[in-house]
Design a protein around this nucleic acid. Sequence first.
DNA 1: CTTCATGCAAAAGATTTGCAAGTTC
DNA 2: GAACTTGCAAATCTTTTGCATGAAG
Lengths: 161, 161
Amino acid sequence: MRLNLNNDPDGGDGTARAHELLVAYLRRRGLRMTGEREALLRAAVLLQGGHFTLDELAREAMRLHAGASRPTVFRSLPLLVDAGILQPALVSGEARRYELALGRRHHDHLLCSRCGRIVEFRSEAIEKLQLGVASRHGFRLTSHVHELLGECAACRAAKRA
Amino acid sequence: MRLNLNNDPDGGDGTARAHELLVAYLRRRGLRMTGEREALLRAAVLLQGGHFTLDELAREAMRLHAGASRPTVFRSLPLLVDAGILQPALVSGEARRYELALGRRHHDHLLCSRCGRIVEFRSEAIEKLQLGVASRHGFRLTSHVHELLGECAACRAAKRA
DNA sequence: CTTCATGCAAAAGATTTGCAAGTTC
DNA sequence: GAACTTGCAAATCTTTTGCATGAAG
């Protein structure tokens, strides 16, 4: 399958930057840019703002690029993560969810266990305390998983009604 | 398979209390105490202090009670969790890990990504901040996942050597 | 005895892999 | 043209289920 790999497919939505990043990453590792990887990239950008599962990403990519197969998504997703374009966002719930990493500041998530709504949050104070906890135990902190589970305002209102 | 279900199998290690809890829970739901569930309970207590995967628990239970099958472990583990005897402890890493819940205070975990060492920690300050974050977003907090990933002191020393 | 639990084997999913054919550079 | 990718189908792995048999209460 042949695509315009040299034409910049950006619409001002950030695909350009993701594309550059991926190509650079692939080159560094002696790997190649392909139509399928391009589709995956565009799918991720389309789902931007969302927190999507591998399955959702695969569907979107297959829609964009008829023929992009599931095995290829399984093979390419780790590359996009490694390249710093995607990052794991949520581990709670049945399926792991990813989000665009691309230049986003670090944040953690609130998850409504009733309706699945996801809200991002950021707390300097918590980040600092985490560092303190880690160093108190002799750990050098490299990352963390922090997800707050509960019921969002809408669901609580619905329940009262 | 027949076991001394009425004899208290405790050795002062907490099995007695877990046993009571489980029997009470099962009775409430019209379910039955069996040798297999007993074995699962004892396995969990044997692995006490540890953070074990379903697989490790299954092996231990099968060792204790020849014949306890994997499907039964899959069927019973949720009961033990529901009864408040076990709780999920770690979601990072390849397999989810459980720990004895039994009367333990809430805590979170540090995980060394190099050697797998797990350290429990507790931070009132972080707990408070979490509540604040949640309420600021209209959430009623019901639980959370908080895992700090890094490198423990020993691994860092080993690397320098 | 009635109902629930179990083990086995089969089923269902999810993820991975071998390989021939097609693409990228 | 050489090396990397892909899709397909098959192979693995993990978890779940149907069902006949065995236990618990």
